[in-house]
Simulated assay, not measured.
Amino acid sequence: MLDSIKLGQNFLINTGVLEKVIEFSDLTKDDCVVEIGTGMGNLTGYLAQYGGEVLTFEIDPILYQKTLQELSSNSNIHFFNQDFLKVDLLQILAPFSKYSFKVVANIPYSISTAIWYKILQIPVLWTRLVLMVQKEFGQKIMAQPGEKKRVPLSIIFQMRYQVQQRFEVSRGSFRPMPRVDSVILKCLPRAYPPDINTINRVANLAQGFFKQKRKKISNLLRPIIDPLIINDAGIPITKRPEDLTNLEWIRLSEILTQTKEVEP
């Protein structure tokens, strides 16, 4: 179990919180649920009870064997002793295409950003995500234009999903007890989200600009394009990266892509 602690896994043991997670997940037998980090299987059992099929990933071989043995009577749980970040998730999901796909998990905090990027960039529009995250990380995901905590992941995730903070969870609800409090986020798909190509284009642009986030957009653009072209397109070049709206990021990425395409 020491390996799991190194990976940033803190096991949720508070039954009341587990029941809240299930409530927010709104599971039916038509759902195929992905869980990242089986852990002790505390949440996994609930998912199997209320959902249709459960695909649960655990990288720690000891925990994998333990939960596999304890929950083996649940024929709708599919255990994977694999690194979620390295699996071909589309291939794994393919046999379950008749189901609606959801992600419900208490994800390892140390790799939260990588997990959220993978969830986002898979060409599947999840019908719901209910994720337990570190409170500070949750604030970043929810940060709006102009807020200091806004990061590239805030921008691209909000383009595809509406994010709501549903519940704060104290550190005493976990073993081992983390040094931080947590929140449960519920994410619902937007009616008309941008496609994955647009998401990736904005992600690459935002990641570059946020490396110099205190600079104004005009200064960041000057080596690439005449900033006045961007200003004339309705994107205020006096703003900083954290101030741009999601639509402004999409428009900016489109203009820069078009400019590259017409270059000799």
Score class of each variant (00 low, 15 high):
residue 105 A to T: 01
residue 174 F to L: 05
residue 74 N to Q: 11
residue 137 F to G: 07
residue 160 R to S: 14
residue 120 L to R: 06
residue 83 D to F: 08
residue 152 P to Y: 02
residue 97 S to R: 13
residue 123 P to C: 12
residue 76 N to V: 12
residue 145 P to R: 04
residue 72 S to D: 04
residue 168 E to R: 13
residue 94 A to E: 14
residue 184 I to F: 02
residue 134 Q to C: 04
residue 109 Y to T: 10
residue 167 F to Q: 14
residue 171 R to I: 00
residue 139 Q to L: 12
residue 106 N to Y: 01
residue 177 M to H: 05
residue 113 T to K: 05
residue 151 V to I: 02
residue 80 F to H: 11
residue 105 A to I: 01
residue 144 Q to P: 03
residue 100 S to T: 09
residue 96 F to Y: 15
residue 182 S to E: 11
residue 145 P to K: 06
residue 183 V to G: 02
residue 72 S to H: 10
residue 88 D to F: 00
residue 95 P to V: 14
residue 128 R to M: 09
residue 120 L to K: 05
residue 148 K to S: 09
residue 159 M to E: 07
residue 134 Q to F: 04
residue 95 P to E: 11
residue 178 P to N: 08
residue 131 L to Q: 06
residue 103 V to D: 05
residue 163 V to D: 12
residue 141 I to M: 15
residue 114 A to W: 00
residue 171 R to D: 00
residue 143 A to E: 01
residue 121 Q to A: 06
residue 103 V to H: 10
residue 97 S to I: 05
residue 115 I to H: 03
residue 108 P to V: 10
residue 91 Q to P: 00
residue 150 R to I: 00
residue 166 R to A: 13
residue 90 L to S: 14
residue 133 V to C: 05
residue 105 A to F: 02
residue 88 D to H: 01
residue 107 I to N: 01
residue 84 F to L: 04
residue 136 E to T: 07
residue 76 N to K: 12
residue 183 V to T: 07
residue 141 I to S: 11
residue 153 L to D: 03
residue 113 T to P: 07
residue 111 I to H: 05
